[in-house]
Design a protein around this nucleic acid. Structure first.
Lengths: 215, 215
DNA sequence: GCCGGGGTGGCAGCTTGTTGCCATCGCATC
DNA sequence: GATGCGATGGCAACAAGCTGCCACCCCGGC
């Protein structure tokens, strides 16, 4: 089934949004669709109605979804309501929505004129795409982690320390290389570890590696 | 269009395989379908016919596809012929094939009886799934990197040690938790570090993080 | 000049990690 | 049963890392 334009999507498929029972997943480049108040209402209503019990909302987006303030606010609302948001560095389809693993809604590739949406219920299609979604989801980073905190802004000093640690130098060698006393170098390391919330140097390395802080 | 069983798939959709011109991508848990000689022939024939020019083969698989020797051999053949193979740690659909971004073939979820395949040509569906595939692809690791060297095969022991280190325990605590003596635990850590070619625990953590060895 | 705060570095004492050495144990082989 | 091999664990000595304490220096404000 194919519908043209947002209005028709709401008219013809709005009940699908409202009828979501267990799961609502969405992969998209940004939040365009969600500017449509009707769809948003339907889902957020459902989220609030069921509380957290058994209803899962997952949104997988690209960093461009964080471009404007309104989108960030909306995403924060979602997470506040128990939804989960992740950011993928890979390009994503313009819009893919899967409801309860039964219905799938795909937006057409970018084209002039009103957007087209395809609504599918074929179990093979839906479950196949759902699995692919999970694969993409698994490797994306949590919004909270992506935004603030976890990828802390490291100044040049910290970066230098990180590089020294990553090079495998002893504190002695590293401190000499950086023109610091061992005491200060260790202070820096301790600060870095605090920033990364690591209890051990190993853990700090792990976090640094996970966050791709090597460069 | 839905077909039942491998034989019918070949009969009804074999020409699609043979007609692939630009791209052949495939996401699957393992290589079951490829036990079908006809489909394999069609694609490998195409691959050899065109050489590397303009024809791309991509296979995204789970580690379980590497379980038996025959599969590994086949994957090596693919890469030797210019195809690209990656391994994803996330679960994947039972089988998803996209040809030239125009045709998509999905296997039904596991069920008794012959497998069902759904063949779709809807541009919206195909391009949407293709984008999801790319997102999953982007975050998977190359077969070569996965197999040899880069991602060393860690046995359960090593994994346990890795987890303990990642948890930030002291050696004392970790050893007790694993039911080992501190001496042996440290031996394990030393082995792990040797495997990761790390000079310090920090470096080991860094490597582990980079290689996604956390899970 | 005087003061106070922040970053630095030396020192000391402690914890943690690293490694070699050797005794022991289980196990398979001879 | 004897032998050898690999894995283990205790011990010890050393290296490395961690941190509190204090002295120092630089700088900006009083």
């Amino acid at each position: 089934m194919t519908v043209r334009g947002d209005a028709e999507l709401i008219a013809r498929a709005g009940h699908l949004f409202a009828g979501a029972r267990h799961e609502f997943v969405c992969a998209a480049r940004d939040l365009d669709t969600w500017s449509q108040p009707e769809a948003r209402e339907a889902i957020s209503g459902r989220m609030h109605a069921d509380g957290t019990a058994g209803f899962v909302v997952r949104k997988l987006l690209t960093p461009s979804a964080l471009a404007d303030e309104a989108s960030r606010r909306h995403l924060n609302e979602i997470t506040a309501a128990g939804g989960r948001v992740r950011i993928s560095s890979a390009p994503l389809p313009h819009e893919t929505i899967i409801i309860d693993r039964r219905v799938m809604i795909l937006a057409s590739p970018e084209a002039p004129g009103p957007r087209e949406f395809t609504v599918t219920t074929s179990p093979a299609l839906v479950s196949g795409v759902h699995a692919l979604f999970l694969a993409a989801w698994d490797n994306a980073t949590d919004l909270a982690a992506y935004l603030s905190g976890d990828r802390p802004h490291l100044d040049d000093d910290n970066r230098a320390v990180l590089r020294a640690l990553g090079a495998g130098y002893t504190d002695e060698t590293a401190a000499r290389g950086l023109g610091l006393s061992v005491r200060t170098y260790r202070r820096r390391v301790a600060e870095l570890m605090a920033t990364l919330e690591a209890d051990s140097r190993f853990q700090a390395g792990l976090r640094a590696g996970e966050l791709g802080l090597t460069g």
